[in-house]
């Protein structure tokens, strides 16, 4: 049932990429995105493909998992592909039927866009595959910490994210339990029209909200009991370390990025 949904798709493995500093991984992913969007021609895609393949091999994540990450966006790919294919005008007309026509330009752009989105998702899901959600929020907090000077509550935001992530599995489990309990009392969740189905959710949502509030209150109390008072002066259990491999990886993406920019300028 609900339990089978994977949230945060962390795929634990022993690999160089998994051991990398999460801050670097985030920066590298951002640079990767920039690279994909800057490149207007095929070489940007090639650079992206090269990066994705190299990182995948280093991370020991099975190729199957990468393909799986693309599956949910197939509808988006289809829409993008078809719209670009039919609506773009330019070059020779390859095929025409009433008002629909496919041009060379359209075919070209459509293939380019679809490939770019695939690479986009594949590359970014590598980040979430190799980094646990908690580490990720930690890294985001540290990357954003300069914004504290602007009075942005960075620590609080990160803490909220961590807590939300922590409680998602708990709430899923709870939903499962409440659903089972109401079904045992004859609640009918599977049949009826839209309105009836929405109404059938009430016996599940109300206990779920009540318990979520109860949990929040208990958690707040427990945190206060342990003298939690925000991020100031707080030390960490896990400190992020950067090392040689992080700089190597950063140089790799910078190299690719500059190659793409140069090719953009001079070709």
């Amino acid at each position: 049932m609900l339990k089978d949904i994977t949230l945060g798709q962390y795929f634990p493995m022993e690999s160089v990429v998994h051991r990398m500093d999460a801050r670097f991984k985030i920066i590298i992913t951002l640079l990767y995105l920039v690279m994909l969007f800057l490149g207007q021609r095929i070489y940007a895609l090639l650079a992206g493909l090269l990066f994705t393949v190299v990182v995948t091999l280093c991370s020991k994540i099975p190729m199957k998992m990468i393909l799986k990450s693309i599956k949910p966006i197939v509808p988006i790919l289809l829409v993008t592909g078809i719209l670009n294919l039919l609506l773009l005008d330019g070059g020779d007309v390859l095929w025409q039927w009433k008002f629909l026509k496919i041009t060379e330009e359209g075919l070209h752009t459509s293939a380019f866009m679809v490939a770019r989105i695939c690479l986009l998702i594949a590359g970014t899901s590598l980040l979430t595959y190799t980094t646990s959600p908690i580490t990720l929020t930690d890294a985001i907090e540290q990357l954003l910490s300069p914004l504290k000077k602007l009075k942005l509550p960075v620590h609080e935001l990160a803490m909220m994210m961590t807590i939300a992530l922590r409680f998602i599995p708990t709430l899923i489990e709870e939903t499962d339990k409440i659903m089972a309990a109401q079904k045992a009392r004859g609640a009918d969740l599977e049949s009826g029209n839209l309105l009836q189905r929405a109404q059938a959710l009430v016996p599940i949502l109300i206990p779920l909200f009540v318990s979520a509030f109860r949990r929040a209150e208990e958690l707040a109390l427990a945190m206060e009991c342990r003298c939690y008072h925000g991020g100031e002066g707080r030390t960490r259990l896990r400190i992020l370390h950067s090392g040689l491999r992080d700089y190597v990886a950063l140089s790799f993406i910078l190299l690719l990025l500059s190659a793409v920019i140069l090719l953009n300028l001079f070709c």
Partner: peptide
Amino acid sequence: QYPEYQLF
């Protein structure tokens, strides 16, 4: 178990 959590 803990059926009171299903009251709504």
